[in-house]
Write a protein that binds this DNA or RNA. Structure first.
Lengths: 207, 207
DNA sequence: CAAATTTCCTAAACTAGATCATTTTTAACC
DNA sequence: GGTTAAAAATGATCTAGTTTAGGAAATTTG
């Protein structure tokens, strides 16, 4: 098949993904769907490439079409803590930096070769201003994000390291397979050594 | 002054509070402000009274006019963890229950005699549907809530118990004064005994 | 204002999880 | 494909924070 045509078809398919996504929350006419999808730009990201770095104001909100990402902060002692993961059909950015348009405190890095759809802050603002439905969509997104984060806070406060791990593998088995152990450990608030122990204690029991 | 008139005037003043609040995020005509404020109902809550209890679907989002509240969960071992505090000009509810209209997992209790403005889920939906500006307001609320929660997650992952405490007193000195120590300890993810030790270690240093 | 209840303090024993140091395994890359 | 680097495992030691238990203050309520 002709190369340019292939690219064009890929783009159509990918934009359908984001249209499908928004239509799970709000119903759109075909025209509205088009307006929404053209606000996004498809970008290829290589493994280990950063899409967010501290001290820069984050310009984009990113929807993952393919691949995996990790958002993390590095504290004064050089230890890093994973704030979020994202795989296909998830969103990722430094949320605080993006919504308040202030300098980022996080890194966001690709864990695999990936493809994202990015929307700029300005385009998102324009979408929200021009159509009530888009405003509704982003409101629902923010609410779900808050609900998700609240669950994580509760988990941190009430569960032991092992319980948090068990909980995570039962909720997100696809993610566990794809992220390095040290990243998962620092997401769950424990050292990689301790997570290794939890895992091997289990493995020995099973054998 | 005539009693009913006094009540009426109080109501006007209190509704001005919520109008002032929303106007910090979106600009409203006087008519819109009126529509917004009449969606709320003023309710007096006695100290130790619950406004949210587990297993019931939460009907209201609550704005605190006066007083103080605490939201918490109780785990299988009977230990409770504080999820949120709210004083004047803050909002409180079981967010997961409210936005997804599913049974609550939290208690929300008054720490003092309080006055709240409550809005029902249905009225909030109606406001958001009828006017783009109200949708924007609730979108901004949700975003700020998510941003706040993200900060708390980062604090839990990166800081020691003492650092979390120091951070909290510098950010929310007004709250520290008004909530019992065990509630603050369980918010910060430590025991009340350990918080007591942190406090007294400091006190001794200062003397 | 006195009794009852709740909150807070102190201190010793204990443990979940961290840190440190070394080895083994896996993955990256010329 | 062989070398080098990064990630994971393992063991020994340590510590921040918990648990348990008691008593002292402070609040609530009759």
């Amino acid at each position: 098949m002709h190369h340019t045509l292939q690219l064009y078809l890929n783009k159509m398919i990918n934009n359908n993904k984001i249209v499908e996504y928004i239509r799970r929350s709000v119903s759109l006419t075909d025209e509205e769907a088009e307006t929404f999808s053209v606000a996004f730009k498809e970008v290829k990201i290589k493994k280990r490439q950063f899409i967010v770095q501290p001290n820069f104001v984050v310009k984009n909100r990113n929807y993952v079409l393919d691949g995996a990402f990790r958002a993390y902060v590095v504290d004064d002692n050089g230890q890093d803590s994973t704030i979020a993961f994202a795989i296909e059909d998830w969103w990722i950015t430094d949320y605080n930096s993006y919504i308040l348009q202030k300098p980022a405190t996080m890194f966001v890095v690709a864990l695999e070769d990936s493809i994202i759809l990015e929307i700029s802050y300005e385009k998102e603002q324009a979408l929200k201003n021009e159509n009530h439905k888009f405003e509704t969509f982003f409101r629902i997104r923010a609410e779900r994000t808050a609900a998700f984060m609240q669950q994580r806070i509760i988990s941190n406060l009430t569960q032991s390291a092992e319980e948090r791990y068990q909980d995570f593998i039962s909720k997100y088995p696809q993610i566990v397979q794809r992220v390095p152990q040290y990243a998962l450990a620092s997401y769950l608030g424990m050292t990689t050594e301790f997570l290794s122990r939890i895992r091997n204690k289990k493995a020995n029991k099973n054998s």
